[in-house]
């Protein structure tokens, strides 16, 4: 029943202006709404570069990609030079935005239902749970973990069906670093990002 009510709230846009909503929830709500709007209005395929750019523009301000990348790289992060760190963040961001665009495109997302967050005013860490309603199949959960930073609340990990992106990438990142070093990982990410558009356009 609450879900139903939540849907109606979301559809009418009332939720976004509610005053007593905690900041992290508000952030996820606004961002989800913006992304959905882009999807419905533009009717673009997820492989489209323009679609990814639009999604990126909407999602970018809510994410702390530095922290996300640092957590995924794990113990090797401190060994990387600032230039290497910047390159890692840049390439990882491209990969993540692409994944996110594909995920909402391939699953034909209809609606994103953000669940109410219960938290204290003093909390600096929060998890916002959402339920993604798709045209086909069961709804699936996406959880966002946020941290209070100097620039406001920022997302530092995303878990799709309980699968944390940071945890998942850490394994393969560490394997690559152990084999080819940090520059090897950067190169692998660059190659990976360059290979993707060629593959989708050939389809």
């Amino acid at each position: 029943m609450r879900k139903f009510f939540g849907c109606i709230l979301l559809l009418t846009g009332l939720s976004a202006v509610a005053a007593d909503v905690p900041a992290p929830e508000q952030l996820v709500r606004t961002t989800s709404k913006d992304v959905l709007e882009v999807m419905k209005k533009e009717n673009l395929s997820p492989a489209d570069k323009r679609f990814r750019d639009l999604v990126e523009a909407k999602v970018l301000p809510s994410f702390d990609f530095n922290r996300l990348t640092a957590l995924a790289v794990g113990k090797y992060w401190r060994q990387a030079t600032p230039d290497q760190q910047a390159a890692l963040v840049r390439e990882f961001r491209v990969l993540l935005i692409r994944t996110y665009s594909t995920a909402i495109g391939a699953n034909k997302v209809q609606d994103i239902n953000v669940k109410p967050v219960k938290m204290a005013d003093t909390d600096t860490d929060a998890t916002v749970r959402t339920e993604v309603i798709t045209a086909s199949g069961q709804p699936f959960p996406i959880d966002y973990r946020l941290l209070k930073t100097a620039n406001g609340w920022k997302v530092y990990d995303v878990a799709v069906e309980g699968v944390s992106l940071v945890t998942n990438y850490r394994t393969s990142f560490n394997q690559t670093i152990q084999k080819d070093g940090i520059d090897g990982l950067i190169k692998a990410l660059v190659d990976r990002n360059a290979a993707q558009p060629a593959k989708t356009s050939a389809k």
Binding site: T99, A103, A106, N107, N168, A188, R192
Partner: peptide, 8 residues
Amino acid sequence: TMHAAAFG
């Protein structure tokens, strides 16, 4: 989605 996400 997995193919878009997979790395390594």
